[in-house]
């Protein structure tokens, strides 16, 4: 009944949009309902959007993630509180949402997901995101400490045996170098990137060369 009414009305209430998601009984209906909800998300829709991340439906999860990203800072605390420890698919989407919002309150979650999550997809998303947090939102004394811990974590991941994590570490380091330049830490990142231009994996090597051009240092011949 709710669905019929909302369909007739030009702008359905958030509650009607939420109900449509919760009552969807096929993947196609779910996708359509999530699309409508994510197109005009409001704060009351946050818990529903977070639940959709765990439905094992990549299309719906991607739309829900975009809805959460649009809500920005308001979605950060619920995303952090409701991180799904038992479903790595859901966790990867939640981490990607936090990465796109860039709120530094996500720092602790991103650091531990990047360093130690058992799912490479979660680790890659968090590792990339550590490079692009909005550091200026932190007070000075916290900012330096947060950036130093992030740098150490990324330098460790840059030694991982999995090429995709080394690749993600380069993306993270590139972002951090731009935030830190010019500084001694930025030079350390450039040295690490320079070292990675001789990686045995050609995709990693290429990414390191590209990162050096982005941070303003030309790659050197080995």
């Amino acid at each position: 009944m709710i669905v019929t009414h909302s369909a007739a009305s030009p702008s359905p209430t958030p509650e009607a949009l939420i109900a449509a998601v919760e009552q969807a009984d096929s993947p196609e209906r779910l996708l359509a309902a999530v699309q409508r909800l994510a197109a005009s998300p409001s704060e009351v829709s946050i818990p529903t959007l977070i639940r959709v991340l765990g439905y094992n439906n990549a299309g719906a999860a991607s739309l829900a993630m975009q809805g959460l990203v649009q809500l920005g800072a308001a979605a950060v605390a619920p995303l952090l509180d409701q991180l799904d420890d038992y479903n790595y698919g859901a966790r990867a989407w939640a981490i990607r949402a936090l990465v796109a919002i860039r709120d530094p309150r996500a720092l602790e979650v991103l650091l531990s997901a990047a360093a130690a999550d058992f799912a490479p997809s979660v680790r890659r998303a968090a590792t990339k995101g550590l490079g692009t947090l909005l550091w200026q939102q932190l007070p000075d004394h916290q900012r330096w400490q947060a950036q130093a811990r992030t740098l150490e974590t990324l330098l460790t991941i840059a030694q991982d045996s999995d090429w995709s994590l080394r690749y993600a570490a380069i993306v993270g380091l590139q972002g951090l170098a731009l935030a830190l330049a010019p500084s001694r830490e930025c030079n350390r990142i450039q040295q690490q990137l320079q070292q990675m231009t001789t990686d045995t994996d050609r995709a990693v090597l290429a990414r390191a060369r590209y990162a050096l051009t982005v941070v303003g240092a030309a790659p050197e011949t080995a």
Binding site: R124, A125, V171, R202, L205, A206, R207, T213
Partner: peptide, 28 residues
């Protein structure tokens, strides 16, 4: 795809390689 666009002895990345890198970054 990227691996076929990389020649370790050439430092300059091709336009195609950079586009592939941007796509890969978006999928992390």
């Amino acid at each position: 795809l990227l691996e076929q666009q990389i020649y370790p002895e050439e430092l300059q990345l091709s336009t195609a390689a950079v586009q592939l890198i941007e796509l890969m970054d978006s999928l992390l």
